[in-house]
Each structure stands twice: as C-alpha cells, then as structure tokens.
Design a protein around this nucleic acid. Structure first.
Length: 241
DNA sequence: CCAGACGTTGTT
DNA sequence: GTCTGG
DNA sequence: CCAGACGTTGTT
DNA sequence: GTCTGG
C-alpha cells in the first residue's frame, strides 16, 4: 500500500498553500506523476523558531528522497525497505521512533496508486490493474510522513529521506482495504508538524485514512507500473478491458 | 559477550 | 544507536 | 509499488 | 524464487 504516488503541484504553489518557506532544492522540483521509492519529492516539515517560543513552528517545503534512512544506517539502501511505517508501531520501532518523536512531515500528493489483483489472483496470469486514489475536488492530499537526516561520512552533505504512515482501514461500503496511507487534515497541521514529542495517543485521532471509499478510485494505464514512465496521462481514467 | 537486524505489503 | 538472538 | 536482475575475470 | 533499484 502506497508504494507509488503522484505530486504535480509546483513548489511555489505548495509553499503558498501550506504557508511555508521554500528551500532552494525544493524550488527545483518538477511535477512527478510516478514517484517511486528513492525518488526525490517535495516534503513539508516544521522548523523550530527559537526566537519566538509558543508560536507554531514555521513550515518549510524541502526536497527529500522516499525511503527513510535512519541516522545510524551504514548505507542508504536500507531506505528501500522503509517507504511505509505502520502507525500502530511507529512510536516503538527502532528505525522510526526518533523521527516520529521529532521529525514528522506531510507528503504533498495528488493521489496514490494501488494495484489490485483480479478476483482469481494467483490462479490467473492476469496482470494487476493499477488504480489511482485521489480526492474528488482535486485540492491535493497531505499524507502523514516522517523524515530523517543521514550522511555517509561526517564531512558529506546531509541526505533528507522520508516515509509514509499506513493504517488498516475500511471504505464507505465497509470493505477492508488491507492498508491505507494516513492523511493530515489541514486543522491538524500545526500539531502534527511540531518538532517535539506528541502527547499520549491523541495524535491517532488527528489522522484520517485515505481509503478508496472516502476518496475516489479509478483504473489507470498499466504504464504506471514502469518507473521510467511519467506524465499526466498516468492519472487519467481508462476503461477496464 | 558479539553479530546482526533495524521494515512493509500482499497472498495462500 | 539500540535491541535481539545465539 | 513494479521491473529487472540473478556473475566473474581482467583491463583501460 | 528473491533481491535490488528506481
């Protein structure tokens, strides 16, 4: 769940809509309709403003690579396996707990892709059908994420990486969709992005599952399966054969 | 003690 | 870095 | 998440 | 079948 998504809004639009600053690296990002693990994409984070205690942290749009690399990692390849974090255990897992305590983020997305196997999955050789899950009004989603700093050597540049939180969820019809990414509602932005530990379990109520029932889901071109393919046609609806 | 992992998803 | 397994 | 590789020696 | 890279 949530192993591929689209983010097409310009960095300056994101900065405006999230009332955030814009880093130089993020300013150079372009629309990506096929964000895959290890790819660099825009991320909204909270910055501590030590000069104004009590004021909500300033936000900033930064560029980060998908797949969280913990600070203690020997190389960045561990990030390939850290693209999602289970919300049920994220506070305890060694790979995520530090980021969860102090480096929560919002991943701006148009929507995400999900591949459905047919009814006779496994028995048929029918390829999986990708769907795009998005908000009907196209105002954009904010996926709940975490980020981390990592560098291979003390003198190397810092690499910023992120992961997306998941949960179990059911849709409007009550069907269980194994795992769904979590959304950060606009009203929860300040609390979620605050760069300090959260108080108790209250945060779980801040976040909302991004289910194909709550949002819209429609089939798209199988071309999205190949990470080399990109472009707005990937999020256009197609007829099922 | 040291060595090795540190994670998720989906499917039967 | 920190925990688990051997 | 899917697609694609899955290996070694020696040499510039 | 399973791992790595994007």
């Amino acid at each position: 769940m949530c192993g591929r998504y689209a983010t097409s809004r310009t960095p300056s639009d994101l900065a405006r809509d999230f009332e955030a600053g814009l880093s130089d690296a993020a300013a150079g990002l372009v629309a990506d309709y096929n964000v895959a693990p290890t790819d660099t994409a825009p991320l909204v984070i909270g910055r501590i403003d030590a000069s104004s205690p009590g004021v909500p942290p300033a936000r900033e749009v930064v560029a980060a690579a998908w797949g969280l690399v913990p600070s203690w990692a020997k190389d960045r390849s561990i990030g390939n396996r850290m693209i999602n974090a289970r919300s049920e255990t994220v506070a305890e897992k060694p790979a995520f707990r530090r980021a969860f305590a102090a480096r929560r983020a919002v991943v701006p997305a148009d929507g995400y892709y999900e591949w459905y196997a047919g009814q006779d999955a496994g028995t048929s050789k029918q390829p999986k059908q990708p769907f795009f899950i998005t908000d009907p009004d196209r105002s954009g989603l904010g996926l709940a994420g975490l980020y981390e700093f990592w560098r291979p050597t003390p003198d190397a540049d810092w690499l910023l990486t992120f992961t997306v939180l998941t949960t179990s969820a059911e849709d409007a019809e009550g069907r269980i969709h194994d795992r769904a990414p979590l959304l950060v509602p606009t009203t929860a932005l300040d609390e979620w992005l605050a760069p300090r530990p959260l108080d108790g379990e209250h945060w779980r109520e801040l976040l909302v599952p991004a289910t194909p029932g709550r949002l819209v889901a429609y089939p798209v071109d199988r071309a999205v399966g190949n990470v080399r393919n990109n472009g707005p046609h990937l999020v256009e609806p197609v007829a099922l054969s």
